[in-house]
Design a protein around this nucleic acid. Structure first.
Lengths: 134, 134
DNA sequence: CACTGATTATCAGTAACACTGATGATTACC
DNA sequence: GGTAATCATCAGTGTTACTGATAATCAGTG
């Protein structure tokens, strides 16, 4: 049974989750990956693109395209980094903060719908177990 | 924390799992997707390509390419379907059966290594919970 | 039997995603 | 001062999986 294989389960769980979170984020004009970038950038001190990429576990060149898209939507801004002109200090704009504040509850609600068939204990354990594996 | 987001966890769990199962399957010349197709095709009555695609939850056109690759490796064969000349009856070859028999234990061992940090109960529950979500 | 509509496999084209490797600018080291 | 490392960027590539079109075949209807 290939349906029992862990790779199959993780992949299809991702697909089914995206079917729920995608529409939930659509009103905010972003997708799940962009929400993750916004969340990562929402720190006290602004990050360089490379720092953000490392924290999120994505490639540096992928982050360039992500920031390009978010900047085009006026959700983030590249600023000169104080003290190192090689770096960009990437900051959320006012609009970026607003979008983040509104999108996070929307996606959390979508996740809960996705997990609706589980008990609270099971849902908690799923997150916990996945966190340890990652 | 974007690291708590379910989409992030599922995606990165998939990536980390692939890092383990990929090398485990490499000696057999197949990847995880191809193993899933082989497993799906290992039935009493041979399936058409479309039936196999539906069981596996992938697109019909994707299955064409998968079967092309597996046929080139002599692991499966397209036969005329008895009673419906529109269909192909896709069968495992002798070599396909051998590969499947050897690769399944290898990938299961890799999965266990991936799950090594979990208790047996947690591992069992992870599979169970994911199955219900898919 | 002839006709219409559905089904199957295939192909070309496309899109999303994420990588490698190279480049220019800047910084750090010694 | 000169060399090596770091950062952002870009062009190119590879993987994956889709849409839409086509030809062959089958099923059902009158």
């Amino acid at each position: 049974m290939s349906r029992r294989r862990l790779g199959y389960l993780l992949k299809h769980a991702s697909l089914r989750l995206a079917e729920v979170t995608g529409p939930a984020l659509e009103p905010y004009g972003i997708d799940g990956r962009e929400l993750a970038v916004l969340t990562t950038l929402d720190t006290a001190e602004p990050l360089s693109q490379q720092e953000a990429a490392q924290r999120l576990g994505i490639d540096r060149t992928t982050m360039v395209a992500m920031i390009d898209a978010l900047e085009a939507k006026k959700l983030v801004a590249r600023r000169p980094h104080p003290g190192d002109r090689r770096k960009n200090a990437v900051e959320l704009t006012e609009r970026g903060h607003d979008t983040l504040r509104a999108a996070v509850p929307a996606v959390e609600e979508a996740e809960e719908r996705f997990l609706a068939s589980l008990s609270g204990e099971e849902a908690r354990l799923l997150r916990d177990v996945l966190s340890r594996l990652v």
